[in-house]
Design a binder for these strands. Sequence first.
DNA 1: CGAAATTACAGACCGACTGTCGGTTTGTCT
DNA 2: AGACAAACCGACAGTCGGTCTGTAATTTCG
Lengths: 189, 189
Amino acid sequence: MNLKAERGAATRDQLLAIATRLFAEHGYEGTSIEAVLQESGLSRGALYHHYAGKDALFEAVLEATEAGIGVKIVEAVAGITDSAEALRAGVLTWIRLAGDPVIQRIVLIDAPSVLGWERWRAMEARYSFGMLKAALRATDAIPDGFLDLHAHMLLAAINESALLVARGGERETAEAALEEFLRRILRSP
Amino acid sequence: MNLKAERGAATRDQLLAIATRLFAEHGYEGTSIEAVLQESGLSRGALYHHYAGKDALFEAVLEATEAGIGVKIVEAVAGITDSAEALRAGVLTWIRLAGDPVIQRIVLIDAPSVLGWERWRAMEARYSFGMLKAALRATDAIPDGFLDLHAHMLLAAINESALLVARGGERETAEAALEEFLRRILRSP
DNA sequence: CGAAATTACAGACCGACTGTCGGTTTGTCT
DNA sequence: AGACAAACCGACAGTCGGTCTGTAATTTCG
């Protein structure tokens, strides 16, 4: 059980890579399974053997993308001891990553409507939200009862910033505004 | 040009009402033109005479929904003179309106991916964002250079809160957290 | 008034797409 | 070698969005 498993994994990876590119370029609706098949040279049967359907393929793409983002953010904050500073560094890293069209379209635009709110929230909790909440707790600036909600609101604000930058906003201004926003949220009464 | 125009308007309204319900219940993808036709008793020709396509129908539904929200928020803040208090009242009204599944699904989930980011942003600017920005400016708590970005971030945070409440979160806690969030943002250094 | 133009609507039809299903090849394990 | 399962194939069915031609009713205008 090696050659077969490897071949299967390679096929899945190939489909994932092609689907990622097409979803990012044309969105979920605008990407046909047919197009993925044509670029991969595989048959319908092969694709549906590995992925239950178009939405499952999208979910796999999203999962891989989120995982990649997570790794990069962890790298960026590694070694920073001050909790507020770590939070700042993580946020800035994320906003810069969001310049990637793949992330814009897949993670920020299509994901909620394709997966549905529940699955989308579950996915987010395992990645960006989970990290942000932990970082926010470490700062001790938010009362426990509000931690969860503030983390959600803050993440939404950050994502919005990322989208604005991604669509032609000035990055420096957005980053400065985001830092100011963050500063106000973290400052205790 | 009266009997005909009225009949046309009535047909459009009927399609809009049915489409609004179906889009809210099953989402954009999950709603077929066929279903709208069946419930309305009209023909394909009739629908395509009034609306250019499925996405145009959705956009009309969204526009009508946003307009309705705008009216209710304006009503809620009417007569409040203190700018911070008006902002607070508007935000709380909006978060309560978001309990409506129609608003959740259409405005908060499907709109960005169906319309595309550009058209979606333009629509938002005419409604919720426009109102929030004006209210925020009135408080004089945000420097001019950051006003636009802070309004965007704040709106995103509010919408996120609304979604959380809409999906079973405790409203009282969310409202309290949101008020605290708002307080921190408005507080000047 | 009466012809022409416009509007509202009907429904057959087309192309594209997703997902299914029986069948074939190709490794793997015993 | 033979049983088995995973990988893969491709025809097919069903659905859906959108187009197109036709028809009836109403308004406009000479």
